[in-house]
Design a protein around this nucleic acid. Structure first.
Ligand SMILES: [Mn+2]
Ligand SMILES: [Mn+2]
Ligand SMILES: [Mn+2]
Ligand SMILES: [Mn+2]
Lengths: 219, 219
DNA sequence: ATATAAATTTAGGCTTATCTAAAAATAGTA
DNA sequence: TACTATTTTTAGATAAGCCTAAATTTATAT
């Protein structure tokens, strides 16, 4: 149906769409996919011919309903495979993204549904990202970052917004994983770094760059 | 390292190599991959540049050790994924080949090794084909076909040589699966069709075309 | 409002993997 | 051996996805 490359473009457009009502710009897409804006223009025309996106020259691109279906289906597969890799094959959460980038393009509806059942219909992937259902619906966590909390407040980690290996490994090294509890001891006004209590055990300091990428459910 | 397409060429060359000491001809490869001999010639030159095959113009192609490693690694992945699909996701043996054709190209050594462990190091895939180890070694069943047996002999099915859905579905419909026992009641001289006793229960007739694709371990 | 800067598209090319048609080499046969 | 049939390679094209450089459009700032 669609090529590997087309699917990656649709995923990128989905990622940066909905942020505002403006279409997603070619430069943003080029940046996300490590390619050039001119290449993006070419591909967008093709996607537009296939009715997967709406393209207004010089004003960016938005997904059609058809395009959104494809994008969420690829994201569904990506996140289900990540669950498989972590839950069944014992990979760490920082090791699975690149493999899932490949697996997300495997074409087989029955495979996806059977995998979903085998994993017992997970709602979130190993990074706390919601898994779209087969119709492309997905519910997000309320987007509260650790950096939004104030002194004395506490919460539980339900997701991460940054998926780099270095960030994920760092979090794990200080016992911050999905489900870890956090209480704010103090916030340094100068750089917004935080002194926090993790799992009611260890006290640690964490930078603003690190705290703003942690999604929290307040307690 | 190698493209999806290159891997498929290497797999095809592996499949038809070793049959004799002659190289595999471009027409045979073209036929296997549903492409044209001229396309094969082009690709062979590329594989030869990459030292994956030895190519003598007009005399076919053979795998180098390096090429054999790649081919068996792809076959290893194909067969391991087929085991996963059947054993863990409850697919039927006639449903898994096309999905495995895609999964076999996923690149991740640790994924393969973890999958192998998760499946408890299977030796054979759902069609009785041996799974190469990580060094590319694979031991074949002794190649005795049902059609080689004579009246009165009996055996157990350990593999199938034809993987089409129609053939596999047919076998299943008459209770011929891996592990089924067979005894030869009679062989019709005219067309070599056989009257057989399956699992010491049902008597059936089976054509030569069907019996010559069943690999048997004699009892 | 006009000039400059920034973003975007177009033009022209490249590579990979295909194809068809023609040429060349090999194999089979009288 | 010589002629024909078959197989294989070469020549020349095409489509997808990418690139750089140039042209065009939009945004920003006097
Ligand atoms: Mn991921
Ligand atoms: Mn994820
Ligand atoms: Mn198969
Ligand atoms: Mn198989």
């Amino acid at each position: 149906m669609n090529t590997y490359t087309e699917e990656n473009y649709l995923k990128a457009i989905f990622k940066y769409g909905n942020k505002s009502k403006e279409g997603v710009s070619t430069n943003v897409i080029a940046d996300e996919l490590n390619t050039k804006a001119s290449s993006v223009t070419d591909m967008i025309k093709k996607l537009s011919d296939k009715k997967l996106v709406i393209y207004k020259k010089y004003h960016g691109v938005t997904l059609t309903e058809k395009g959104r279906k494809v994008a969420t289906s690829v994201i569904r597969k990506h996140r289900l495979w990540e669950v498989f890799l972590v839950d069944k094959l014992d990979f760490k959460w920082d090791e699975v993204h690149d493999i899932a980038e490949q697996l997300e393009h495997i074409q087989s509806d029955s495979l996806v549904e059977r995998l979903d059942a085998f994993l017992e219909h997970p709602e979130y992937d190993p990074h706390g990202d919601p898994i779209p259902d087969k119709n492309g619906n997905l519910q997000h966590h309320v987007d509260i970052r650790l950096s939004d909390l104030i002194k004395g407040e506490s919460g539980v980690i339900v997701g991460v917004k940054e998926h780099s290996t270095s960030y994920l490994k760092y979090l794990e090294s200080i016992n911050l994983v999905l489900g870890s509890s956090i209480q704010i001891n103090e916030i340094v006004e100068f750089d917004q770094s935080m002194s926090i209590l993790i799992n009611n055990k260890e006290n640690t300091n964490i930078s603003n760059q690190a705290s703003k990428n942690l999604i929290i459910k307040k307690l």
